[in-house]
Simulated assay, not measured.
Amino acid sequence: MFTETTEIPQWLLSSWLRSCQAAGATANDAELIAVCRDLIDRWNGEDRCYHGVKHLVDVLTHVDELAAEAQDPDLVRLAAWYHGAVFSAEAHRAYANEAGEDEVASGVLARTQLASLGVPEDNAEKVSRLVTNLVRHKGSGSSTDGAVLCDADLAVLKSDPQHYKHYLAAIREEYSHIPVIDFVRARLRIVTRLLERENLFSTAGAQGWEEAARQNLIAEQARLTKELKKLSQADEPVAHSA
């Protein structure tokens, strides 16, 4: 939970305040900080091994990198704050379909909290819509703001091999309660869907990430396919002679 001693980047709170004020919030600093603390509490949830504060910081950092392509960069930053605010890694939530992040509930939370801070209805609604539209991570064909948010969220895919390995380990730990064969099948479906896209990233600034991301995904797909084959063979019943 958020406390006065929670270790977070010093710029995170000031970034939140600037974005809220740029979006038209009329609440005072104390009210803005209270909502920020609520969000940090959410991102600090005990069941978050990957989708935690570090992921939030990474997405915000990549939004800043792509900000020149956004129409309303501060609204995109606010959407980044909310895109995984509601999260559950419980087994009944199909990893392959939702990956724990509840974009619809997060969008509702964004609209409700931002409205309570005096953010104009149009802006609160736009942030909510950006969050909700992130469900399938399809940046192409969406608004430029949606494309920036989507690319920033998927930027982890272009990590160097060592960081990509850490990312995969964190994802697996987050869903450690799911049987390994179910997790491998689900993850393989996700990776395959991503590789079937013509482009992983939509913004001009993210085009340079494409090759590294595809190489990571191709290598992961090969490993998962091999692992699934072994797991499936081990799960087969042993034939007994009469």
Rank of each mutant, 00 (worst) to 15 (best):
R37Y: 12
N133L: 14
D122S: 13
L39V: 12
Y95M: 07
L117A: 10
K54H: 13
K54R: 15
L109A: 14
H51C: 08
S88H: 01
V76A: 02
A110C: 06
E103C: 06
N28Y: 02
A22R: 12
E101A: 10
D58N: 15
A94E: 14
V119Y: 04
E90Q: 09
I33R: 14
W81L: 08
A25N: 00
Y82D: 08
Q71S: 14
G24L: 03
D74G: 02
L13W: 06
H55F: 13
A34V: 11
C20A: 11
L75I: 08
A94W: 11
P73I: 07
L60H: 05
D58A: 15
A67Y: 00
S88F: 02
H137Q: 09
E101H: 03
A30Q: 15
G100W: 02
N28I: 02
Y82W: 10
A79R: 01
A110H: 02
E31R: 14
E65F: 07
N28A: 07
E125V: 07
H83G: 11
D41E: 15
V63E: 00
V59L: 12
H83C: 11
L13P: 00
E69L: 06
T61I: 01
E90C: 06
A30Y: 10
L13N: 00
A68R: 13
Y95T: 03
W81G: 03
V59G: 09
A115H: 06
V86W: 00
Y82K: 07
L130S: 10
G45W: 05
H55N: 15
L130T: 10
A99V: 09
A110V: 02
R129Y: 06
L66A: 01
V135W: 03
L39A: 09
L114N: 05
I33V: 15
L109V: 12
V57M: 12
A68S: 14
N97I: 12
D64F: 00
W16M: 04
A30P: 04
A124T: 06
G100Y: 03
L78V: 02
A115K: 08
L78T: 02
E103N: 09
A105V: 00
R136C: 10
A80Y: 02
V119S: 04
E125I: 04
A124I: 03
K54G: 09
S106L: 05
N28T: 04
D38E: 15
H137W: 07
L78W: 01
A110L: 04
Q21C: 07
E65W: 05
